[in-house]
Simulated scan of single mutants.
Amino acid sequence: MIVAIYIVFFFIILRFTVTLFNFISNPKLPHIANHYTDLVSILIPARNEAENILNLLRSIHEQDYRDYEVIILDDDSDDDTYAICSQFAAEHPKFKVIKGEPLAKGWMGKNYACHQLAKHARGRFLLFLDADEKVYKRLINSAVHRMYLRKLCLLSLFANQEMDTIGERSVVPLMHFLLLNLLPLRLIYLVKKRASVAAASGQFMLFDAELYHRHQWHQLVKNKVVEDVEIMKAVKAYGYSGEALLANGMISCRMYTNYIDGVNGFSKNFMAPFNYSIPMFLMYIVLVVGGPLLIISTGDLPLIGQIIGLIILTRVMISLSAGQNTWLNLLLHPVHMFNLAVIAFLAIQQQLTKATVWKGRKIS
């Protein structure tokens, strides 16, 4: 019992330390007023995104970067995605929409869509965005500046998350919760040629086009479910520089619109940071969810107070870094932990049965 308590206490201290490092180092993309004129190809894979994509297209049109092209690939949608994009493109000459080819054997759907999009791109930089996002002024100038400043092959941003329902708010904050207390983001750039120190978000992937076309990054990870992290690993393994930062309010995303979609969506990729190792994933879940309960069961009030204080400080720092409601995240922390356990159960079940389905396609 004593040994278990020491392990839990050490684990919570370690997670707090990582969170503190991320909070102090402030891994956000700085707002830059410099104006660049490189052609940026904005590439958007879209499958059944009729409800979302118009918000993204309008936000791109309204942002302040002028030297860009937008290519949308309709990936066999069975809703009005193609018609909506076609109508918008007809009224805005920098936008065009293409029909995707049938999914090739051995490929994941999004990876194949991105691979096709890159073939049509003319830009000095290739920017892959998801269809459920909105972009804001200074985003592209700030990102291009960062590419030049750090001589990056890949810059990835973790978008600010929009949450309108209590179901979303009880699940979506887990993304930044795991991200900011598992990995010091600054190390992704600082630790060179170490593929193990990697994270990325497919919501924003900005590539040096020359290196992308040379290595065909999406083809390299064509059968990977969590392609963003795998690409960052590949970039670093080849000796190039990659960086992952928080979007700092310059891009937002509403990932899911309800509780069920959130749980199902996260369950397909939450094991990626653990290299899909079920024992490692289980150990983390047991410690993060069950550890504090073990401490509370001891009845040791000073120890319980220390643990609760560390958890509160951790949630405050993560919420502030992610631009989320701090008080609501604190209030919902027990709910978040319960949902983390639910997601873990589904993730392990899908890993064992190879039965993950997303947007109508089996992906594992």
Results as ranks from 00 to 15, higher is better:
Lys193Met: 07
Ser59Ile: 05
Phe23Ala: 06
Phe23Asp: 06
Ile348Tyr: 05
Gly291Met: 02
Gly167Trp: 13
Ala237His: 13
Leu294Gly: 07
Lys192Ala: 09
Thr37Val: 14
Ala46Trp: 00
Val197Ala: 05
Lys119Val: 06
Leu303Trp: 09
Thr19Glu: 07
Ala209Met: 04
Val40Asp: 00
Asn258Leu: 14
Tyr276Ser: 01
Val97Thr: 11
Glu227Ala: 01
Ala121Gly: 04
Tyr276Phe: 10
Phe95Trp: 12
Val342Ala: 11
Thr356His: 12
Gly239Cys: 02
His333Cys: 12
Val263Tyr: 15
Ala104Thr: 07
Ala104Val: 11
Pro27Trp: 07
Gln216Met: 07
Phe11Trp: 04
Ala199Gln: 10
Phe281His: 01
Lys105Tyr: 11
Cys253Arg: 10
Ile307Met: 13
Arg15Pro: 05
His115Val: 01
Leu310Arg: 02
Cys253Ser: 10
Ile307Ser: 04
Lys137Gly: 15
Gln203Ala: 13
Pro30Trp: 08
Leu211Phe: 02
Tyr36Asn: 02
Leu127Lys: 01
Leu340Phe: 10
Lys222Leu: 00
Ile84Arg: 00
Ile98Leu: 10
Phe23Lys: 02
Phe128His: 03
Ala104Lys: 15
Glu101Lys: 15
Leu20Ser: 10
Ala322Glu: 01
Thr353Tyr: 11
Leu178Ile: 03
Ile363Met: 06
Asn48Lys: 05
Val357Arg: 15
Gln203Asp: 11
Ile312Lys: 13
Lys362Asn: 09
Asp76Thr: 09
Ile42Val: 05
Gly299Leu: 12
Tyr148Trp: 06
Ala355Trp: 08
Tyr36Leu: 00
Ser170Asn: 09
Ser267Arg: 05
Glu210Pro: 06
Tyr212Asn: 03
Ala234Glu: 07
Ala237Trp: 14
Ile13Asp: 01
Gly109Ser: 09
Val263Asp: 11
Met108Arg: 15
Met280Gly: 06
Leu246Cys: 04
Val97Tyr: 05
Ile304Cys: 08
Glu210Val: 05
Arg214Gln: 15
Thr81Glu: 04
Phe204Cys: 08
Lys94Leu: 13
Ile2Gly: 03
Ala90Gly: 15
Glu91Thr: 13
Gly290Phe: 13
Glu69Gly: 05
Arg47Tyr: 10
Met163Ser: 08
Met108Ile: 14
Leu346Met: 12
Ser252Glu: 11
Val225Lys: 06
Met250Glu: 09
Leu174Thr: 02
Arg194Lys: 14
Tyr112Gly: 02
Ile7Val: 08
Leu346Ser: 12
Leu301Ser: 15
Ser297Gln: 07
Ile98Val: 14
Arg66Leu: 14
Pro102Tyr: 06
Met175Leu: 09
Tyr240Ile: 00
Thr19Ser: 14
Leu183His: 02
Trp107Leu: 06
Ala33Arg: 09
Asn269Met: 14
Leu332Ser: 07
Ala159Pro: 15
Ala131Lys: 01
Leu139His: 03
Asn26Ala: 13
Leu294Trp: 09
Leu149Asn: 06
Asp64Ile: 04
Val197Trp: 08
Asp132Leu: 03
Gly323Val: 05
Lys192Gln: 12
